[in-house]
Design a protein around this nucleic acid. Sequence first.
DNA 1: AATGAATGAGAGTTCATTCAT
DNA 2: GATGAATGAACTCTCATTCAT
Lengths: 199, 199, 199, 199
Amino acid sequence: MNTRKEKTQQRILHAAASAFWLQSYQAVNVNQVCDLAKVNKATLYQHFGSKEALAVAAITQHFERQKTEVYEAALSAAPNPIDRLSGIYQRIYQQHLSRYDQGESCAGCPFVNISSEMASSSSVIRDAVDAVFTHFRTYYRLIARDAKVIGYANRELDGDVAAPALVTIMNGALVSAKAENRPDAILESLDTAKLILRG
Amino acid sequence: MNTRKEKTQQRILHAAASAFWLQSYQAVNVNQVCDLAKVNKATLYQHFGSKEALAVAAITQHFERQKTEVYEAALSAAPNPIDRLSGIYQRIYQQHLSRYDQGESCAGCPFVNISSEMASSSSVIRDAVDAVFTHFRTYYRLIARDAKVIGYANRELDGDVAAPALVTIMNGALVSAKAENRPDAILESLDTAKLILRG
Amino acid sequence: MNTRKEKTQQRILHAAASAFWLQSYQAVNVNQVCDLAKVNKATLYQHFGSKEALAVAAITQHFERQKTEVYEAALSAAPNPIDRLSGIYQRIYQQHLSRYDQGESCAGCPFVNISSEMASSSSVIRDAVDAVFTHFRTYYRLIARDAKVIGYANRELDGDVAAPALVTIMNGALVSAKAENRPDAILESLDTAKLILRG
Amino acid sequence: MNTRKEKTQQRILHAAASAFWLQSYQAVNVNQVCDLAKVNKATLYQHFGSKEALAVAAITQHFERQKTEVYEAALSAAPNPIDRLSGIYQRIYQQHLSRYDQGESCAGCPFVNISSEMASSSSVIRDAVDAVFTHFRTYYRLIARDAKVIGYANRELDGDVAAPALVTIMNGALVSAKAENRPDAILESLDTAKLILRG
DNA sequence: AATGAATGAGAGTTCATTCAT
DNA sequence: GATGAATGAACTCTCATTCAT
């Protein structure tokens, strides 16, 4: 699947995702995305139809990346659920730290950001983000199940309760990190996440 | 302090806070705020200088309102720290529910929203929100202290750790409520909050 | 004539003349003039009715000042027409130099400036400036007459021709000084003025 | 060089130059220019970036036109330096007369006007005008040299002194023409110009 | 008489989107 | 098919001027 068409689309999506994350949906304009992706504006519109559709596609693409680079990587790296949980936090922390050390401000979670900004105005963007969070829960559900298996978690721990709570605390952590412009806030929520996991 | 000037300012701030909350900072334009507040655009600018300054003032005003209507009300209503925690969640839930029942979508936390949207673009907005969260922590610190006093919380519970965690979980809960367009998500985080409080 | 009313008017006129000179008629707004003059905006309007009327009054006031400080001062300082001509140039040069040395850019002739800017839009301003130039010619006519008397000027020199030419060269000199941002351009036209005077 | 892009740009520049000349930089708004040029406002901004940049481009374009229509035309029409000087004055006079006879007021020199209005506020505009005057001097230097060759000018005449003086007198003449709303003032300065040329 | 507060109209500029080559 | 050029609508902000006290 390396057709020229797909390469162009990937370039656009990557540019859009970066720009939306660094600033915000509305602060980024289509020209900036075109410049970053080095495509003509009409080309972008031929591929994605509208800025909103581009955002949805960028959300999906960024989601795929995080799935691989954060969640599946953390699962692959360790069998132990606590290590896995820790691995997720470490990876997200590193993503923020590396940008922060380059002088950029702490960008927070791209999904939280665009949802907070646009959920009221665009239900299609809201739904795209909702689907992302729904999927993220599956990883936490897996971790919760294993935490019970190894006896870390309480016996009554309900994975269907813990999983959304773990997404919630991660989102909250990233909100704090952005509001305080302090990547460390991410790691500081790991203890709370463990608390949730214990039940 | 019911001068004409202050009445006008309050009208503008109320309109701005409502509009920013229902949509977003960038989705709202100054004309809309003027129409809502029934003031001329030049009047608004004479009072607040810029849209950004208006947002900061609106954040502060909304903060004062939440301080009174949510946090201090919850503290006044019950001496018990768990009841107080619960009271905070109930009040914030009610705010969302009443609007949701009127057909509006679940707006989430205005402070989280504007921070997620604007923190990277406007440090003055970011700082204003940061100050709000900092203040909210004081209420949770109080609750944590009392939770230790009555023996609900663990002896080792550190209020300076629990308080930010409680702000974080509340923010995460409101992010979920917005992303899922479901006010119930707020109440569903109360258990996590209690977990944090227990330590 | 030192009534409080007149003092206020003088303060306003002085502020307006300064501001218009330093920037331009349209670049200066009424608020700036009020701030400089430390009067309320409504007070200014009560005294002058409109920005245009204020400009006309400021032109007249500045004219009176230049009459005294430049032309009559130069005439008083020397009986010789060449010295008098030179005195006029020196005084105008000094006005520009002192401001230029304080870091401001070379402002040129306030009458030329406002005429170039506004003559096409406001005939009342144009006429006010025209009257100023008309009056200035009388000083040069006097100098031309004396130049003939002492034999410096040609016998055929017509004062009614030389006088407007001397106003013209002064105006041109101030245009150059402003365009080049170089007060020296003023003095460099003195030789041309002498040439005109000689006939 | 008749691309669509260039045609649009020329239309805009012509409209801008006309409008700025007839009124003033600040009195003309971008909408007027767009209406005159029959282009959309966004198109104008895509081509010129800002009103200030448009003014600079309009100055340059008007300069090219005057170079051709006035200065080079006058040089081509006659070999004799006095005739050439006279030709310059005649051409500028005719430009003013034809508009004046159509009922418009005497607009003066567009370069002098915009410099007098804007030099203090915009150094880029000031510099653009300064460059124009610098170039005009080259024509007068040529004329001064030839005037010496044919023995009209004094032997000691310094072209580097006469040339700026000739620009200065022309500018002064156009200031007078505008202030008095009387095109004849232009021709009346020709004698002074000859005086300068003689040395 | 004097002033703080208000206003309608309009300024320059930018946007997401589409046309025309 | 790809792109440079164009567009209508909307944006934030400012102006000279007047009202209400």
